[in-house]
Computed example of a mutant assay.
Amino acid sequence: MDFSKVIQERRSVKKYDQNVKMTKDEIEKIIEIASLSPSAWNLQQWHYLIVTDEDKKQQLQKCAWNQPKVSEASASIVVLGDLHAYERAGEVAEEWAQKGYVPADGKKGLVDSIYSFYENDQTKRDEAIRGASLAAMSLMLTAKDMGYATCPMIGFDPEAIRKEFNIPQNLIPALMITLGKGEESRERASRRSPKDIITYETF
């Protein structure tokens, strides 16, 4: 599909065909493409909890204010941000040296820079949410391009999800995405015009 058409036709779909079951291969293909999203130092702060089991979806629905689409979609995905992504700095430095992005003797400096940047807990959280959000948008656009519908969700109790699904403390539930076959027939809500959302140079 033409990219501009993907953007224009993507909708937040609330109702799904419960008879459609997506395969792991289909879901993982979407994830693979979505994971080409950008991230600082290529640390890739995202992780996905993918729930397809019917009983597990019911449990997740309870953590999401009982919204029916959570259990009706083929998969409900909790997009997580990793607070410890910076700990992969060594892997990044090694790959960058192999590809000639940094000289071999520059690996330690790169690692030190990354660790220094992530010393602040707020920075770790901001980057985890930022990375997860970039990947989430890519996931939704990829799904649309492959003929599937999605809906981003913030209506859930993150701590309830953490407890119910044993999510490690370093992973933050940033948002949820329902995924499956469905369509939105209502007219799209209006968008603010460029003149309302652009400021050039300075305020």
Rank of each mutant, 00 (worst) to 15 (best):
Q8G: 01
E9H: 04
K14F: 11
Y16R: 05
Y16C: 05
V20Q: 05
V20F: 03
K24I: 02
K29F: 00
I33C: 00
L36C: 00
P38D: 02
E54N: 10
D55I: 12
D55E: 14
Q58T: 12
Q58F: 10
L60A: 08
Q61A: 13
A64F: 11
K69N: 12
V70R: 06
S74A: 15
S74E: 07
I77S: 01
V79H: 02
L80A: 02
R88W: 08
A93I: 10
Y101F: 15
V102S: 09
A104D: 13
G109K: 15
L110V: 14
S113N: 14
N120W: 06
D121G: 02
D126M: 10
D126Q: 08
A132D: 03
A132Q: 03
A136P: 01
M140P: 02
L141A: 01
Y148F: 14
A149H: 07
A149I: 04
M153V: 07
G155E: 13
P158L: 12
A160D: 07
K163N: 13
K163H: 13
N166I: 11
Q169I: 09
L171K: 13
I172C: 07
A174C: 15
G180F: 11
S185E: 15
R191M: 09
S193V: 13
K195T: 08
D196L: 11
I198D: 02
Y200K: 06
E201Q: 08
F203A: 01
